Amino acid sequence: MADSGPVARGFPHLDTVHAALTALYRRLSASGIQAFGLSVAPSEVAFDEEEDLHLGAQRIAGALVRHYRLPDARAVVSFREMTHAATVELTAGPEYFIELNNRFRGHRRDIGAALAHEIAHVLLHRLDLSFPGTRDNEILTDTVTAYLGAGWLLLDAFRADALSSQKLGYLTPEEFGYVLALRARHFGEDPAPWFTSPQAYPAYQEGLAMARHEGRRPPLAAAGWADRRRYARDRRQARAGDQLTTAPYRFEGLGPAAVSFACPACFQRIRVPVRGRLRARCSLCGTVHDCET
């Protein structure tokens, strides 16, 4: 896990986030995702002021191992001087050695966030799921951490004032908020009461707005009037043989006969016929969408 330098903002990594969610659904399946319906509870990762540093870190690591449904894995946590925030040694197991930066000795409330990310690496290692390149693989790990119910800790580790800022992970605060919003929509939970950082909730709201925007794009029936007009224009152009490549949907065949778009839940492409109002079920995540094609 990288330590934060200047905190990037906005949504620069959404393509990789979408690919990560699709890959996660393909590896775990929709029913496997449902096993993570409950997020990590704040009480499980809270650090008591009187608690021993190492015993507390081991307790939190154990709670996260159980959350990720890794019953035979054991996380051994230590602290040392290092450049990065944390690192994990990925071996055949069952013991996995996690090292945390010494600065967490004085910032104990963020230990849960660092461990959530590193133990997600263990989960992905066991699933044999990875992306090429450090950057994309870390974004995959952040996305999985957030979507499977432990990522609110990483967003809550984002804090800023007039002189400094800190963040854990590769996703921006808004992107963490975005993945948490997708999870909240899927599982019907609200992570907002768990945030203790004053900066976490606004970032979550930004992510929530982006997730809602994606859920209102044509050909989804929830699309707004202006987007519907653009969709109708693009459909006419497709009928004339002019395909608009910048739109979030793509017309196919003569007529056109079909339109494809990304599922706003798992981002696998869905292909439906162009024949007015219909309902489409995503073959990967099972989400049913009302469409106006």
Rank of each mutant, 00 (worst) to 15 (best):
96 Y>W: 11
98 I>G: 12
99 E>Q: 14
100 L>G: 02
103 R>L: 14
103 R>N: 10
105 R>C: 09
107 H>M: 13
109 R>G: 04
110 D>P: 00
113 A>G: 10
113 A>E: 03
114 A>T: 03
117 H>F: 14
118 E>R: 13
120 A>Q: 04
120 A>Y: 00
120 A>S: 13
121 H>C: 06
122 V>I: 15
125 H>G: 02
126 R>K: 14
127 L>Q: 02
128 D>K: 10
129 L>V: 03
129 L>I: 03
131 F>A: 15
131 F>S: 15
133 G>K: 05
133 G>R: 05
134 T>W: 12
136 D>E: 15
138 E>G: 11
140 L>D: 10
141 T>G: 09
142 D>V: 05
143 T>A: 11
144 V>D: 05
144 V>L: 12
148 L>C: 07
148 L>Q: 08
148 L>I: 07
148 L>K: 11
148 L>E: 07
149 G>S: 09
149 G>A: 12
150 A>V: 02
151 G>T: 02
152 W>F: 06
152 W>D: 00
153 L>H: 04
154 L>V: 07
154 L>N: 05
158 F>Y: 15
159 R>L: 05
159 R>T: 11
160 A>F: 01
161 D>T: 08
161 D>Y: 10
161 D>E: 11
162 A>C: 05
163 L>D: 01
163 L>H: 04
167 K>C: 13
168 L>G: 04
169 G>Y: 06
169 G>R: 04
170 Y>A: 09
171 L>Y: 02
172 T>L: 08
174 E>H: 10
174 E>P: 01
174 E>V: 08
175 E>G: 10
175 E>D: 06
176 F>N: 13
177 G>D: 11
178 Y>H: 15
178 Y>E: 12
179 V>D: 08
179 V>R: 12
180 L>S: 12
181 A>F: 07
182 L>H: 12
182 L>I: 08
183 R>Y: 15
185 R>P: 00
185 R>V: 12
186 H>P: 00
188 G>M: 10
189 E>F: 14
189 E>Y: 13
190 D>E: 05
190 D>W: 07
190 D>K: 06
190 D>F: 05
193 P>L: 09
193 P>W: 07
194 W>C: 13
194 W>G: 09
195 F>T: 03
197 S>P: 03
199 Q>R: 15
201 Y>N: 05
201 Y>T: 06
206 E>Q: 14
